[in-house]
């Protein structure tokens, strides 16, 4: 399928999803759907660095929070519409992603992962001590009750996140089928051999951290309006970092569809568990599923299907 055809198809699917949501017409659908969509963006963004290039980032929450806090900062300084905040959040997180990549990409494997975790802690400490954006007290953002032309404001946020999910998934797919995607795959498989084959590994990895960081920041930018109250402990929460890793792992990391499947599956399951059991069950659910998948299907759901197809093809 051609990239533009794919984009049109993705928009069509998103439009259908939005149509069904408005047909149901319950605000809860928007609240729950927003979180699932947000995880589609985060998981897809994580996968561009973690799945395509093989560099495990434990600092997803920090990039998400960067987007959220960029929005808080701009909101306090001079309120702008949310799409503009998303662009700003994306740029800030992309630049920080580049910087983090530049400082840490000489590390490999588990050392890179530790460095990203440390980076998240450093950033959280900075935010806690930055009074302008609320420091450890947090910051309130009063969102308007409705959006002109659409109805409730949450419906508007839901629509925005839907658009972001389309952008993220399309970006991932375009990368996957491009020269860049092959370069990423070569880096993931064998960096030394990739260099010998002419792949500029450092430049490509920097590109991956920037794109991945930018998308995470974009996912975080509307968050203050969704939640209404932003404070460091929850914005830098463990759930974001863990889910961003677990969802692609469960779905499958080598293709664009893996994180999508993982995020929809795990995200929905978490929303159901929150309502029916308790919100504390969320992370437990992720943990159990992750362990199960690592043992049973280390290449995720997509890997499992591919293996079946391959076995049948032989």
């Amino acid at each position: 399928m051609h990239n533009s055809t794919f984009f049109v198809a993705a928009v069509a699917v998103a439009a259908a999803v939005f149509g069904i949501s408005t047909y149901i017409g319950n605000d809860y659908i928007y609240f729950a759907g927003y979180v699932v969509l947000q995880y589609i963006v985060l998981a897809t963004a994580w996968n561009i660095l973690g799945g395509y290039c093989g560099y495990v980032n434990f600092g997803s929450a920090a990039f998400f929070a960067l987007g959220a806090y960029s929005a808080v900062f701009v909101h306090k300084f001079y309120p702008l519409p949310i799409p503009a905040l998303i662009v700003i959040g994306g740029i800030v997180s992309g630049i920080i992603g580049f910087g983090m990549g530049y400082l840490t990409l000489r590390l490999r494997g588990v050392f890179f992962a530790i460095a990203t975790l440390a980076f998240a802690v450093v950033l959280q400490t900075l935010i806690i001590n930055w009074d302008y954006v609320g420091g450890s007290r947090g910051a309130y953002i009063i969102r308007p009750s409705d959006f002109p032309g659409l109805g409730s404001y949450i419906e508007y946020l839901y629509l925005i996140m839907l658009a972001l999910a389309v952008i993220a998934v399309t970006t991932a797919r375009v990368i996957e089928r491009s020269r860049l995607g092959y370069g990423f795959a070569a880096i993931r498989d064998d960096e030394l051999a990739a260099e010998a084959a002419g792949v500029p590994t450092l430049r490509l990895k920097l590109l991956a951290t920037s794109i991945s960081g930018a998308l995470m920041g974009m996912a975080g930018a509307p968050f203050p309006y969704y939640i209404g109250y932003v404070e460091p402990a929850s914005t830098f929460g463990l759930a974001y970092a863990v889910n961003s890793i677990a969802m692609p792992m469960i779905g499958g990391t080598t293709t664009w569809i893996g994180p999508l499947i993982g995020a929809i599956l795990l995200g929905t399951l978490q929303q159901i568990a929150t309502v029916t059991i308790s919100s504390v069950v969320n992370l437990l659910l992720v943990g159990v599923l992750l362990v199960a998948f690592v043992i049973i299907a280390p290449n995720g759901i997509v890997g499992l299907v591919q293996e079946r197809l391959r076995a049948r093809g032989k």
Partner: peptide
């Protein structure tokens, strides 16, 4: 060429 072959296993 590398002494010990280093292919890209996932490709």
């Amino acid at each position: 060429s590398f002494q010990l072959p280093r292919p890209f296993p996932s490709l």
